[in-house]
Amino acid sequence: MSKQLALGLTLPESTGLESYLPASNQQAVSDLAACAGGTGEPFIYLWGAPQTGKSHLLQAATQLADQAGRSALYIPLDQATQLSPAIFDDLEQLDLICLDVVEGIAGNADWEQALFGLFNRLREREKSLLVAARCSPLNLPIRLPDLVSRLSWGLCYQLQPLNDQDKIQALTVVAARRGLPLSDETARYILRHTQRDMGSLRRLLKRLDQASLEAKRGLTIPFIKAFLEQHRSLDEAAIPPTG
């Protein structure tokens, strides 16, 4: 059974692979799915700028592993201060380990040594490891040379951000899953007038979904324009005066 850490961590909402738009990242997504299912390359390193979907893909991999009857664990290492390197002990008993934001433990000798040991044990037992970070293995500020070497094994993919047409497609797909018809023209309007990263766009669609239900209106440009103007006014009113 796939699982996340029940240690008081703030984990992002788990997301499935079907809600990730691959665009130019199709090969990385295909290989990740094979790894999660236990049929592909056992070690994959994903890297890229924020909002390229690294966390999304690692969480999706735990779901895929579960569906394949494999045990999996997702660990966000940007919250390493709430954990101990001992958390890596015995994880080789699981089929798949997904380590997100691995730069979060870079430069910490205890964590680096623990990760090095985990990598070796997983390899000996022919288990799978997915790692994600903002930069390539060679550019991580890792001080343990042997760990840098290990992180350079297997497949390495730089995830590419979505272009505007990809984002329009992603918006219409996400909206359709919520039962919201969204035209390309309306999606373009949203892109022009809001934050353009997919995380913000998904959150906006969730809010628009609720607002449209309450107002019993569809996602038209006038409705979205009024919604955005209202919430900008509320946000500005919430800013305390200075001086």
Rank of each mutant, 00 (worst) to 15 (best):
S2E: 14
A6K: 13
L7R: 11
G8K: 05
L11I: 15
L11M: 10
E13W: 09
S14H: 09
L17M: 10
S19K: 12
P22M: 04
A23C: 08
S24N: 02
A28M: 00
A28N: 02
D31N: 08
L32R: 01
A34D: 08
C35V: 00
G37P: 07
G38Q: 04
G38F: 08
G40T: 02
G40H: 03
E41F: 02
P42G: 04
P42E: 01
F43S: 04
I44M: 02
Y45I: 13
G48Y: 00
G48S: 01
P50L: 10
P50T: 13
Q51G: 11
T52G: 06
T52D: 07
G53Q: 01
L57D: 02
L58N: 01
A61S: 15
A61R: 00
T62V: 13
T62G: 11
D66Q: 14
D66F: 08
Q67Y: 08
A68M: 12
G69C: 08
G69I: 13
G69R: 07
R70H: 09
R70A: 12
R70D: 10
L73I: 14
Y74F: 11
Y74W: 05
I75F: 06
P76I: 15
Q79E: 09
Q82F: 10
A86P: 06
D90L: 12
E92S: 15
E92I: 10
Q93W: 03
D95K: 02
D95N: 06
C98H: 03
V101S: 15
V101K: 10
V102T: 08
V102P: 03
G104K: 03
I105G: 03
A109K: 08
D110Y: 06
W111P: 00
L115F: 05
F116E: 01
G117E: 01
L118N: 03
R121S: 00
R121C: 00
R123D: 02
R125H: 00
E126K: 11
L129R: 02
L130K: 03
L130Q: 00
V131A: 06
A133E: 02
R134K: 11
R134W: 01
S136I: 06
L138I: 13
L140S: 02
P141A: 12
R143H: 11
R143C: 15
L147I: 01
L147T: 02
L151H: 10
C156I: 15
Q158R: 13
L159D: 07
Q160D: 05
Q160G: 09
Q160C: 09
D164F: 07
D164E: 15
I168K: 00
A170G: 09
A170M: 07
A175G: 08
A176N: 12
L182S: 02
E185G: 08
E185M: 07
T186H: 06
T186V: 08
R188Q: 06
I190C: 06
L191M: 14
L191A: 09
H193Q: 04
D197M: 09
D197G: 05
S200L: 07
S200Y: 14
L204A: 05
K206G: 12
D209H: 03
A211S: 10
S212P: 04
L213Q: 11
E214M: 12
A215H: 07
K216E: 14
R217M: 12
R217S: 13
G218C: 13
P222K: 14
I224Y: 02
K225F: 07
A226N: 14
A226T: 14
L228A: 08
Q230V: 11
S233P: 09
S233A: 15
L234M: 11
E236L: 14
A237S: 01
A238V: 05
P240R: 10
T242M: 09
G243H: 05
